[in-house]
Simulated scan of single mutants.
Amino acid sequence: MARPVKSARTAQSSQRRKVRRDLAAAALELFATKGYEATTVDEIAATAGVARRTFFRHFRSKEEAIFPDHDDTLERVEAVLLDAPPQENPIDTVCRGIKEVMRMYAASPSLSVARYRLTREVPALREREIASVSRYERLFTRYLLNRYDEHSHLGDEPLLAEVAASAVVTAHNHVLRRWLRRDGQGDVEAALDHAFTIVRRAFGDLPAGAGQRAGAPRAVTDGEVLVTVARTDAPLPEVMRAIERALDQRG
């Protein structure tokens, strides 16, 4: 008896995604042809074939409109974290989670490339993109903090969780930007896997404990905190080599 209700909800969700994507395509087209500042919400709605009030049911502002899939992607990422096998290393789980974000971009390469170029030119869109990405980083930080042993780093668990989450997100963004600059050409998932291999060298052995699921692997550390310095524009391999050198010096 519940099946028709579920089917109706699925249809509504599908229609919602379609409207959001139509609005995003309209916004992107108008921003590219008329310019961001000259484009109005009314024009975006009209181009998409919907009313102004429909636009505001889906987006709060015109800059938000060109990122229609982040909400749904965030839900998929959360599902990856919640459904992770008990024995999986937390860093591996987070790496699997952020792959959902990459798949979102890779599903429409031409749209992603056009959006990337536009966000480079319009500060308001760039700020919106940064805000969207930061939601994933906060989610990963909370997840890792919940998985780390609360007595392993003498109170530095929040720092380590945030740094590790940031490393995973930075690796993802580094690979994504390189792919977008190549017009969406190449095996982006293979490049992402390589970047994650580098991240795991630095963070894969952080201990999980009190917040972890039963059976998750543990590691013993002496509670030290690693601090290293790298340029903000340094390539990811250079950043990771700096971390590795610091680890070698510590040992």
Rank of each mutant, 00 (worst) to 15 (best):
I66R: 01
Y116P: 14
I198M: 11
Y148Q: 06
A167D: 09
V229S: 04
A51R: 13
R53I: 10
A167M: 08
T73G: 04
T47D: 13
R21Q: 15
K34F: 03
W179F: 04
E162D: 08
M1T: 15
D205P: 03
T119F: 06
P217V: 11
P85Q: 11
T40A: 07
W179L: 03
A216L: 07
R126E: 12
T197D: 14
T170I: 10
E121G: 11
R241G: 09
K99H: 06
R103T: 04
Y143V: 15
A202K: 02
V77W: 10
V101L: 09
D149H: 04
P90C: 05
T228S: 14
V94E: 03
R138P: 01
A24P: 02
L159T: 08
P123V: 07
P109C: 00
R21S: 10
R135S: 10
S13P: 06
H70N: 15
L154I: 09
R9P: 15
A2E: 11
A26R: 00
A27R: 01
L206A: 04
N89T: 12
G49A: 02
A84D: 10
K34Y: 01
S166I: 05
D42A: 11
H70D: 12
D92V: 15
D233W: 00
D92T: 12
D149E: 13
I130M: 13
E43A: 11
A106Q: 02
I130G: 06
W179T: 02
R57N: 13
A24L: 07
A202F: 08
T221Q: 03
A26F: 00
C95D: 05
R120L: 15
A214R: 08
V50D: 02
R126T: 15
L118Y: 00
C95S: 09
E78M: 12
V188M: 01
F55A: 06
A167Q: 13
G155Y: 02
A230R: 03
T40H: 02
D222N: 05
N89L: 13
L154W: 14
D183W: 01
R96S: 12
R128Q: 14
R147K: 05
E78S: 14
I66T: 09
S13G: 15
R57P: 07
V77G: 12
V77K: 09
M1G: 07
Y148I: 12
S13C: 14
E189N: 03
P90R: 00
I98T: 12
V77N: 11
T40L: 05
Q249F: 08
A32M: 07
P123D: 05
G223Q: 05
V163S: 07
S152P: 08
Y116M: 11
R96V: 09
P4D: 11
R16T: 11
I66N: 03
L81A: 04
K34A: 10
V19F: 08
T141L: 03
R177Q: 06
D233G: 06
A191M: 12
T39W: 03
G211P: 04
A38M: 05
S61V: 14
T10Y: 07
C95F: 04
F55G: 04
A106F: 00
E137T: 13
R142W: 05
R181P: 07
I130T: 13
V41Y: 00
A45H: 00
A11V: 12
